[in-house]
């Protein structure tokens, strides 16, 4: 099992918006969409600022995405891949709801490995 960390009650996350959380000193951007929860690195790779949680979320084509609030690049909420520059991406964290609490674990790729 992974080390799941409880973050907050689900209701604390606004719908279709993000919030930042601290996970052992790392910054995670949590997003709550109609489809569920997403957790990505909070660091915008283009500016280096910890702001991804403050981006607008939506979709590009069929991909759910968050747009960086600094220079507006879009990132896939599920894969973390930058949709404007495929050489760049955000780390993806595992996220689940347990007994009404949002829980996060890192990193997602270790999970599937």
């Amino acid at each position: 099992m992974n080390d799941w960390t409880s973050i907050c009650p689900t209701g604390r996350l606004p719908v279709e918006r993000g919030m930042a959380a601290l996970l052992d000193g790392e910054q995670v951007a949590l997003f709550r969409t109609a489809d569920g929860l997403h957790a990505l690195s909070n660091r915008d790779p283009f500016s280096g600022a910890m702001v991804m949680s403050r981006g607008i979320i939506g979709c590009r084509g069929r991909r759910p995405m968050v747009a960086s609030p600094i220079y507006k690049q879009a990132f896939d909420l599920e894969t973390g891949r930058c949709l404007d520059d495929p050489t760049v991406g955000l780390e993806v964290y595992a996220v689940r709801v347990d007994a009404g609490m949002v829980q996060v674990a890192r990193p997602a790729r270790a999970l599937s490995a």
Partner: peptide, 19 residues
């Protein structure tokens, strides 16, 4: 409406390059 706003309107302040 909160989820529609760009970060500036969302925080009622102007975002700078360092966040």
């Amino acid at each position: 409406r909160g989820m529609l706003q760009d970060t500036n309107d969302h925080m009622l302040a102007n975002l700078q390059k360092d966040g």
